[in-house]
Simulated assay, not measured.
Amino acid sequence: METLASLNEPPTTAALKVLVIDDNKAHAEGLAELLQLAGFDASHVLTGSDGIEKARRDAPDAVLLDMNLPDMNGFEVCRRLRRDPKTAHIAIVFHTAQGSVPGSRHEADAFLTYPVAMSEVYSVIRGSVERRRSSRKLNF
């Protein structure tokens, strides 16, 4: 069981900007709040199209992406983010309460199935962002 101290453990890197895209308002708000408590710069939206627009505008380091959205599924959001030069660099972490689907098959950096400890969510986000950053450095 996580304690308040473990929920509030600071990130090992500078505050990472994370966009939560989840159609369940309570879940999206809760995830964003827990991420903020842990030192992330987190925001949330409730639809895929709003997520794509916000990602283009705000350039987050990572997107925590739900599979089921009202206007399109998470795979479509991921595909559109990867095809856009403004958002192709963003780390994408799928999250769902459903059975797992290999994230790499859908161009995601990671895939989380709930229930999951928030410390694992923080770790997966940080690791995914660091891998993306390292990969970009190697490609220049």
Rank of each mutant, 00 (worst) to 15 (best):
L16E: 13
L16P: 03
L16C: 01
K17N: 12
V18C: 09
L19C: 01
L19Y: 02
I21W: 03
I21C: 07
D22F: 00
D22Q: 04
D22A: 03
D22K: 01
D23W: 04
D23S: 09
D23A: 09
N24P: 02
K25N: 04
K25T: 13
A26I: 13
A26W: 09
H27C: 08
A28E: 02
E29V: 11
E29W: 04
G30R: 08
G30V: 06
G30Y: 04
L31A: 10
A32T: 11
A32F: 09
A32L: 07
E33I: 08
E33N: 10
E33C: 06
L35Y: 08
Q36I: 13
Q36V: 12
L37P: 01
L37K: 12
L37E: 15
L37N: 15
A38G: 14
G39H: 02
G39N: 09
G39Q: 05
G39D: 05
G39M: 11
F40N: 06
F40S: 07
D41R: 09
A42K: 01
A42P: 04
S43H: 01
H44D: 05
V45Y: 05
V45I: 07
V45M: 00
V45E: 00
L46Q: 12
L46W: 10
T47K: 04
G48A: 00
G48S: 06
G48E: 05
G48P: 03
S49E: 15
D50F: 00
D50Q: 11
G51K: 03
G51E: 09
G51A: 01
G51P: 05
E53M: 10
E53H: 12
K54G: 00
K54E: 11
K54F: 08
A55C: 10
A55R: 01
R57Y: 08
R57C: 08
D58R: 06
D58C: 13
A59H: 14
P60L: 08
P60W: 09
P60Q: 15
P60K: 03
D61N: 14
A62M: 04
A62Y: 12
A62W: 07
V63K: 00
V63I: 12
V63L: 06
L64C: 13
L64W: 05
L65Y: 02
L65Q: 08
M67G: 10
M67T: 13
M67L: 14
N68R: 11
N68D: 13
L69C: 06
L69V: 09
P70Q: 01
P70V: 02
P70R: 07
P70N: 09
P70L: 01
D71F: 11
D71S: 07
D71G: 02
D71V: 11
N73W: 14
N73H: 13
N73S: 14
N73G: 12
G74I: 06
F75R: 01
F75P: 03
F75G: 01
E76R: 11
C78E: 07
C78P: 00
C78F: 04
R79E: 15
R79C: 02
L81E: 02
R82V: 12
R82Y: 06
R82T: 03
R83F: 04
R83E: 15
R83M: 10
